[in-house]
Amino acid sequence: MTAEQRAKSLSVHLVLIAYSVLAVGPILLVVMNSFKVRSAIFGSPLALPDATTFSLVGYEKVFRSSHILTYYSNSLIVTLVSMALVLLFGAMAAWALTEYRFRGSTALALFLSIGIMVPIRLGSVAILNMMRSAGLNDTLTALVLVYVAQGLPMSIFILSEFIQQIPKDLRDAARCDGVPETRIFFEVVAPLLRPAIATVAVFTIVPIWNDLWFPLILTSSDSTHTVTLGVQQFLGQYITDWNSVLAALSMAILPVVLIYVILSRQLIAGLTSGAVK
């Protein structure tokens, strides 16, 4: 490497490091200060907590005055159930649309793709009415149904691209082998769609976990709040209690960051796999 090349590469790294600091700095700041006593939060916000400044008082408050564990389990249930259904129904529909030629298949694909671009949120008025009349308002079922409907179009789109990448010969071989069509999907195609899960997750599952709108309009009691809504309401209530606010924010941030760091390789591979261009 020549001196000039080294200088160039150094400047590239400087820019990237600077942006990285900008990207994680605020998150670190919040998480770091959530473990400190109030005086240290204001006295030296940029310092790591040490023996004298360490405190879990904010976390204690959050556990005491909110149903944070209920929120977690609600978010987990809603996200996991929605994810399972989005993947299952999405993959099945994507398979039928890519594999079978039938009259109206193009029209159906177009119909399904409306939902990619038009936000389902705009139908909220009617969704609330429907859920009310079906007795589903303030239930997790209502959230799951809406999220599945919201996630399906994008997941069908992504999964279709993945299914097209599965060699056609494989399906033909299975047909020559006498494998029934449903088994071809479940035993040959579906297992090969595993790499698509990460891509679908980024585009449909993460928004579900993070959503504020539908919990806000469809759930009204603490027992059905999700983390995002629960924390949002907690923050509004305890806005002046900095320990609690920072702790609540950190509790919303940390699980996501943890899962993200564990899965980041797959998630990013899924994003850059070329399936979404």
């Binding site: 259904l85 529909a93 079978y100 139908g123 909220s124 009617a126 429907m130 149904l145 399906l152």
Partner: peptide, 24 residues
């Protein structure tokens, strides 16, 4: 086959996404 594979997705999507849009 089409009913089996497309039915659930189309039903949920139509009922909870398209219909509310139109109804709104």
């Amino acid at each position: 086959l089409l009913l089996f594979f497309l039915g659930p997705a189309v039903a949920i999507y139509t009922l909870f996404s398209i219909y509310p849009l139109v109804a709104t």
